[in-house]
Amino acid sequence: MEFIIFVIFWACVFSLVFYKVKSGKVAKWAKLFRILTVVFSISFFAYWFIKKSAVAFVDNSVGLQVVNKLPQTLDFYLINVNKVQSNIILEPKHIGKIRPEYYRIEYLKMDTSDEYWIVGYLGKKNLVYFSQHSVPNKNIDQIVEVQNYINQSVKLSEAAKKQVDAYNYENTKLGIWISLDFLLLFLNLVLLLRKNKSH
């Protein structure tokens, strides 16, 4: 994902440079490159946004329903604890903000895991909820009702907090690259349409 976004960024940069090439044999290849860059970029982002907005159902997964019974809206994260050989890999995912008496559904891929953590934030940095859950039977869906402000393990919650911080940092960095891609893509599209209209 990050690699393709990086490739699109540089393709859009080169497309802007190639806009200056308006004569000779190279001009046709430059225009073709610009058209392919715009078409590919729009197609990729359209596919990506549709995929992100679709329900994240995973085959052979465990359904997880997180219910917020607290009087305040909390921002929840899910951390899947994967055990690969002798290594433990923590895989964070943003569930989203859940209002009081509302719920969200996620699907857990439990091929290499039998445990997950739920982390709840009040605001951006204030961790007010942490719970650890085992999955003894992967054929039964999970329901977690958040009823108290608890922290079941200070040590594990600190590890979870580090994972969430790193996850959010990567997402912020990715968001900046995507914003740059959109800006360059928009400029390329405007120049391409202006060029076509002038003919």
Rank of each mutant, 00 (worst) to 15 (best):
Y169N: 00
K161P: 00
L185W: 08
S61M: 02
S131G: 11
I178R: 14
G120Q: 02
Y121G: 00
S113R: 03
E115I: 00
Q72K: 14
N87R: 15
I88Y: 10
E145M: 05
F76H: 03
F18V: 08
I150R: 07
K25V: 05
Q152N: 14
D75G: 06
I42V: 13
N196Q: 14
Y102M: 12
K197D: 04
L156A: 09
A27P: 04
W117N: 04
V190S: 09
V7R: 05
L183E: 07
V55Q: 07
Q163E: 15
V17C: 09
C12G: 07
S23F: 13
A56R: 04
Q163W: 05
S53T: 09
V38L: 14
L189V: 12
K124P: 02
E170Y: 14
F18A: 10
G175Y: 12
V190T: 01
G175L: 12
K83R: 14
D141T: 03
A46G: 05
Y47D: 04
T37K: 07
L187C: 13
F182I: 15
Y77C: 07
K109H: 09
S41G: 07
L127P: 06
V84Q: 14
F130G: 03
W117E: 00
I5L: 04
L189F: 15
N139I: 04
T172W: 13
I143V: 15
N68W: 03
M1R: 12
Y103N: 14
L184S: 01
R99D: 08
Y102D: 10
S43M: 08
I89C: 06
N171F: 05
F49R: 08
H94F: 10
I105E: 02
F33Q: 07
K69Y: 12
I79L: 10
E170P: 07
L183A: 15
P100A: 03
L180E: 10
N82K: 12
S179F: 12
V55C: 00
I79T: 00
A56P: 00
N137E: 10
L64P: 00
L78D: 05
I42D: 03
S198G: 05
Q72T: 11
F9C: 06
K109T: 15
K155F: 11
P100D: 00
H133F: 09
V164H: 02
K22D: 13
H94K: 14
A11M: 12
S198A: 13
R104L: 02
F57E: 14
A56L: 03
E158G: 01
S198D: 12
R99C: 01
P92G: 07
K109G: 09
P136L: 05
V81T: 03
Y129I: 01
A54S: 15
Y107C: 01
N151P: 00
Y129V: 06
K52V: 10
F76T: 01
G63R: 09
W48L: 09
K195C: 05
H199V: 14
L180A: 13
P71Y: 07
Y129M: 04
K51F: 15
F57M: 13
A30R: 02
V13Y: 03
I143M: 08
K124I: 08
D111P: 04
Y116V: 04
N137Y: 12
S179M: 11
D59L: 12
I150S: 09
